[in-house]
Design a protein around this nucleic acid. Sequence first.
DNA 1: AACTAAGTGGGAAAAAGTGGGAAATCTGTG
DNA 2: CACAGATTTCCCACTTTTTCCCACTTAGTT
Lengths: 145, 145
Amino acid sequence: MLIGEYIHTIDEKNRISMPAKFRKELGKKIIITPGLEKCLFIFTLKEWEKVSKKLSNSNTELSFLKADQRNFNRYMFGRAAEVEIDSIGRILIPDFLKDRIGLKNTAALIGVEDRVEVWNDKVWSQSQEAISKQAGELAEKLGNS
Amino acid sequence: MLIGEYIHTIDEKNRISMPAKFRKELGKKIIITPGLEKCLFIFTLKEWEKVSKKLSNSNTELSFLKADQRNFNRYMFGRAAEVEIDSIGRILIPDFLKDRIGLKNTAALIGVEDRVEVWNDKVWSQSQEAISKQAGELAEKLGNS
DNA sequence: AACTAAGTGGGAAAAAGTGGGAAATCTGTG
DNA sequence: CACAGATTTCCCACTTTTTCCCACTTAGTT
């Protein structure tokens, strides 16, 4: 399971090292896609298979949302990239994804169960502050559903 | 069952020793997460499995499609850490968790049935005073529900 | 007072993260 | 098609952080 928060730097060559604790689970190749909210999602190949299968199959359940579905899939698939992890655990983030979330020198790498999220570190800490305040509320809400 | 209150110091390397009475039950590895209210939760791996299963409904659907779910998972998983207990019973508290609850030199370790809570010792004693005053009231409330 | 167990502190080795050079590849131009 | 310049890839090296192990101190027990 991928958990925890790590702040790493992005060097001039656009490289960023994956936290050592994530490497075993991530394997050698990963899929990086634009995420929801201002972040990127990183999936293992295995997880990506699951995700893409579910996204494409959900037509059956969500047929009334077809146009939305198409657009969402364009969003997720169209900008996804397969990226290799180098011998010492670093990846290259494509420029178009970097720009999308305003990455500059440092990024926050967040393990969220079955994916890694990449955030501008400042945006991350701000959004966490906001979320921590709501956490109790959210917990109750999810607890009831 | 984990019970009791212990005040321990946190050294310059961010280490804190688990009370000897907790060690057998905690095992070799634990999960430490932000708690609700201003404390951290420490779970055994077994307990964490239960907790995380309840938190994510990733078996049934994609965990990232609902905004509330995303945010709560970021909070619970993103700021969790799997931590080993060293040969003499100490753990390392990640900085981002330490900061969150304002830990400095000493912490209160509280056994609460199936988890351990970590508090800033001063915050703990204050909140205890407050709670003891309400305890009777709280009991009635819970008895009625 | 000696012994044991629990908690605290610190040094040395190992690992993780960061930076940078050189070879290889790509791009565009004459 | 050859070449220069730029970009990418691969590898090595440095620095910082983490991990592992050992030793000291305190408190409670016999």
